[in-house]
């Protein structure tokens, strides 16, 4: 494994000593050249997991090893500096992820300028190369982020992350803020870059259908816990956990014929508050198949079928 999280935890403290269990004992590894898709509803903790994994949040518990080396629980500027050439991230919001006062050139060159301390002018050729590689043009260099569309900005964000040639890329819902037509372009671009650079990727999204095209394996999170993990296609067509089944069943079909036949199985209720969770199955309250023991004991993630890990008592 290139990077491996073991029982990673991230709690946020609230007033009155209460805690939000954003990520609760998640163990997940990403192999070299592998793309892992991480899906879940809003509030399931998938973004927090991604950010805790690479040090943008301090870890509350558990450990993360990168190439077998333990990463610090709390990051300082020097720690980020050390891992800058290895791990990079693409952010969800294409508006907030680019500094409005900097030109596209300055934004993309930032990583090299910080790492090598060279003047910006010396980096021009490399920046132009990356700008064109993500599908933009050299005459965009001196422009400012507000002049670009969401898809173009996301491409700038990709160029900024990849210019330092990292080995691992965390993509935090890179397509959820984009139009559907642009989503496909960005996913395609990421797929191409992943293949040509041999990148490992953690692809965080809430849209399963898009994720399965780029992922080797898929992981499903619910309320801070990892509940299912398996090969992407296998998991998508044969979901095992009741929650994954409902999640995939609620996904609309693009074909109207199929869409009409699809049985809409709504998940009853809202995702519960992640504050002061009880020690039983996180999904028990909303699970159509829940039994008595689901309300007593928290199921561990175990291998049900070869390569398929599920956290459910019923399997």
């Amino acid at each position: 494994m290139l990077i491996e999280a073991t029982a990673l935890r991230k709690f946020f403290s609230l007033s009155g000593g209460r805690q939000v269990h954003a990520v609760d004992e998640v163990s997940l590894g990403i192999a070299e050249h592998e793309v892992v898709g991480l899906v879940g509803e809003s509030g399931s903790g998938k973004t927090t997991f991604g950010k805790t994994l690479i040090g943008l949040h301090d870890k509350s518990g558990g450990e993360v090893r990168y190439r077998g080396e333990l990463l610090p629980a709390r990051y300082g500027a020097a720690d980020f500096r050390k891992q800058a050439s290895e791990i990079q991230m693409i952010f969800q919001d294409p508006y907030g992820s680019l500094n409005p006062r900097m030109t596209i050139f300055e934004i993309i060159a930032e990583g090299l300028a910080i790492r090598e301390g060279r003047s910006l002018a010396a980096l021009r050729d490399k920046v132009v190369y990356w700008l064109e590689r993500v599908g933009l043009h050299a005459d965009h260099l001196s422009r400012y982020p507000h002049e670009f569309s969401g898809g173009q900005r996301q491409r700038v964000g990709i160029a900024r992350a990849l210019i330092v040639e990292p080995k691992l890329l965390i993509c935090d819902e890179p397509i959820s803020a984009l139009d559907v037509s642009v989503q496909a372009q960005v996913v395609q671009l990421l797929g191409e870059l992943q293949a040509s650079m041999g990148l490992s990727m953690l692809f965080i999204a809430h849209d399963l259908s898009m994720v399965r095209y780029v992922s080797n394996r898929m992981a499903v999170m619910y309320l801070g816990s990892l509940i299912e993990l398996g090969p992407a296609e296998d998991l998508y067509f044969r979901p095992l956990h009741p929650y994954t089944q409902l999640l995939i069943a609620s996904n609309p079909e693009p074909d109207p014929e199929h869409e009409r036949q699809r049985q809409d199985q709504l998940i009853s209720g809202e995702i519960p508050s992640p504050v002061d969770l009880k020690a039983h199955c996180r999904f028990a309250g909303r699970c159509p198949k829940a039994e008595a023991r689901c309300f007593e004991e928290r199921p561990a993630l175990r291998e049900v079928l070869p390569g398929r890990l599920v956290a459910c008592h019923l399997l």
Binding site: K51, I54, L56, A77, F80, R81, K82, A84, I87, Q88, M89, F91, Q92, D93, G96, S97, L98, N99, P100, R101, M102, I107, E110, G111, I114, R115, G157, R160, A161, V164
Partner: peptide, 25 residues
């Protein structure tokens, strides 16, 4: 903001963050 996090990921020091990202904004 995400661009500050991105700069931290790229290894920016405090002074760089303050004068390149925070102050201009």
């Amino acid at each position: 903001e995400a661009y500050v996090q991105a700069a931290r990921m790229l290894g920016a020091r405090s002074l760089y963050l303050i004068f390149r990202h925070l102050v201009p904004n």
